[in-house]
Design a protein around this nucleic acid. Structure first.
Length: 257
DNA sequence: ATGACGTCGTACCGACGA
């Protein structure tokens, strides 16, 4: 089973790229982030024609998350992150598929920091960590995939010194990620490639992709039951080189049956 | 310190992203 996550940066503007990638990479399950489309503008027909069922939580202009599945309609568990009824951002959706609980997240960027946006990021992170603890305690197979907007270590950024004041790399952000991992989750890409340079995002500016000036901010966290099945993982970096690409590249894992 | 670039909305610039 191949599971992928892809921050598409606009699901409608990105539709040709998304469909081409689905065809070429052929994931079984997909988490999408940054749909940037209201609920009713999700391109369901095109996704269905590509062979996927879908659930999604849209929002006008910003955010928006979706889960695609080749197996049938994902059984939705929740489309909000618990813990704050006032939070109206579409940043989390969770479903049960093929015996796996799949959480698709788009963690807040948090810039500029310090400031209210950074405060929101840390609050959201705390809520997510609480929810993750419950999922972990269930003992079920769980995959938490998406755009975490966290550069976990200095090995996950092309030039760490340029990012020390950035919300993606500040000590509080990294500590929050560490705290989450300490529940027992496996960072799938890092586990398989402990010493590789792995990036999942390259800025549109300054020829960042050409210079490989990237960040690793899209992550797969696996509960032990899924970790045991981890066979392979990677980044579809070639997609970032396509015309009209997102600034993120798709990331995927492959699980043994 | 800023802006480079790209997306979306009601839009011919501003907000936001990372």
């Amino acid at each position: 089973m191949k599971i992928a996550t892809y921050n598409v940066n606009g699901v409608n503007g990105r539709l040709p790229v998304l469909l081409r990638w689905l065809e070429e990479s052929a994931p079984d399950l997909v988490c999408l982030q940054e749909l940037k489309a209201p609920e009713e503008k999700f391109p369901l027909q095109a996704i269905r024609d590509a062979g996927y069922h879908a659930i999604w939580h849209g929002q006008k202009s910003w955010n928006g998350v979706a889960i695609l599945s080749r197996y049938g309609l994902p059984a939705e568990v929740t489309r909000v992150l618990p813990g704050d009824p006032e939070d109206l951002h579409s940043r989390y959706i969770e479903a049960e598929v093929e015996g796996i609980t799949l959480g698709c997240l788009y963690l807040p960027n948090g810039n500029p920091a310090p400031g209210p946006k950074f405060d929101y990021k840390l609050r959201w992170f705390e809520r997510f960590t609480m929810h993750a603890a419950e999922l972990f305690a269930s003992g079920k197979p769980v995959v938490l995939a998406g755009d975490y907007n966290v550069i976990p270590t200095e090995h996950d950024v092309y030039k760490p010194e340029r990012w020390v004041d950035d919300a993606l790399f500040l000590p509080e952000t990294r500590a929050a990620f560490e705290k989450l991992l300490s529940q027992g989750w496996t960072d799938a890409l890092r586990k398989l490639y402990p010493n590789e340079t792995i990036y999942t995002f390259w800025d549109y500016f300054r020829n960042a992709f050409g210079r490989n000036a990237g960040l690793r901010i899209d992550h797969f966290l696996l509960s032990p039951a899924v970790d045991k099945r981890l066979k392979e993982a990677g980044v579809d970096k070639f997609v970032r080189g396509w015309e009209k690409s997102s600034d993120h590249a798709p990331v995927w894992i492959e699980l043994k049956p």
